[in-house]
Simulated assay, not measured.
Amino acid sequence: MATLRERKTYRAQVLRVLYEAVEGNRLLGITGAQLRSDLRIPEQDLAAACTYLAGEGLITVDWDPGNTPAMVTLTHEGIRHMEAEEEEEEGAV
């Protein structure tokens, strides 16, 4: 079981990889297999991160049997969240 810090890190990583992969276009998505490959995190932790982020309205997830993300996409709110984060990072430099 992942610690709270690990769970928060996984969530942030999922959002970052997804945002970079789809270049802010909410019509594009990434497969769960690609996310697992890019992030190298345990499958159950990826599923938990996706469930959490979907609950927050930041992503949508199409699920395969066995609670495995098949396709993950950013929502409009997810894009806004990532753009705000990007603006904060640019302002900090």
Rank of each mutant, 00 (worst) to 15 (best):
T3Q: 04
T3Y: 10
T3V: 08
T3G: 12
L4I: 01
L4P: 00
R5S: 12
R5K: 11
R5Y: 04
R5P: 01
R5L: 10
R5E: 09
R5D: 08
E6Q: 12
E6N: 11
E6Y: 14
K8C: 09
K8D: 07
K8G: 11
K8A: 14
T9M: 08
T9Q: 08
T9G: 07
T9H: 04
Y10P: 07
Y10W: 02
R11G: 03
R11W: 05
A12F: 01
A12G: 06
V14T: 02
V14P: 02
V14W: 04
V14L: 07
L15N: 06
L15Y: 00
R16M: 15
R16G: 03
V17T: 14
Y19A: 11
Y19I: 02
Y19G: 03
Y19Q: 06
Y19R: 03
Y19C: 05
Y19F: 15
E20W: 04
E20V: 03
A21H: 08
A21R: 05
A21I: 00
V22T: 08
V22N: 01
V22L: 14
E23Q: 11
E23F: 05
E23S: 11
E23T: 10
E23Y: 05
G24D: 05
G24L: 12
G24E: 10
G24N: 12
N25S: 14
N25Q: 12
N25L: 12
N25M: 13
N25A: 15
R26L: 11
R26S: 12
R26T: 08
L27R: 14
L27K: 06
L27F: 09
L27G: 13
L28V: 01
L28M: 00
L28D: 04
L28N: 07
G29A: 05
G29Y: 00
I30A: 03
I30P: 00
I30K: 10
I30G: 02
T31M: 09
T31S: 15
T31E: 13
T31I: 04
T31N: 14
T31V: 09
T31C: 10
T31Y: 06
A33Q: 08
A33C: 08
A33F: 11
Q34D: 14
Q34N: 11
L35Q: 06
L35W: 12
R36Y: 01
S37N: 07
S37G: 04
S37L: 10
S37Q: 13
D38K: 11
D38F: 02
D38Y: 06
D38S: 10
D38T: 03
D38M: 02
L39D: 02
L39P: 04
L39K: 11
R40I: 06
I41F: 15
I41Q: 15
I41N: 15
I41G: 09
I41Y: 14
P42W: 13
P42V: 00
P42M: 11
P42D: 06
P42T: 09
P42L: 01
E43R: 13
E43S: 14
E43Q: 12
E43P: 00
E43C: 13
Q44Y: 06
Q44S: 00
Q44V: 06
Q44R: 14
D45T: 08
D45G: 07
D45F: 12
D45Q: 10
D45L: 10
D45Y: 05
D45C: 00
D45A: 13
D45I: 01
L46C: 13
L46P: 10
L46M: 09
A47Y: 04
A47F: 03
A47C: 08
A47L: 06
A47I: 02
A47P: 00
A48G: 09
A48I: 02
A49Q: 02
A49I: 03
A49W: 05
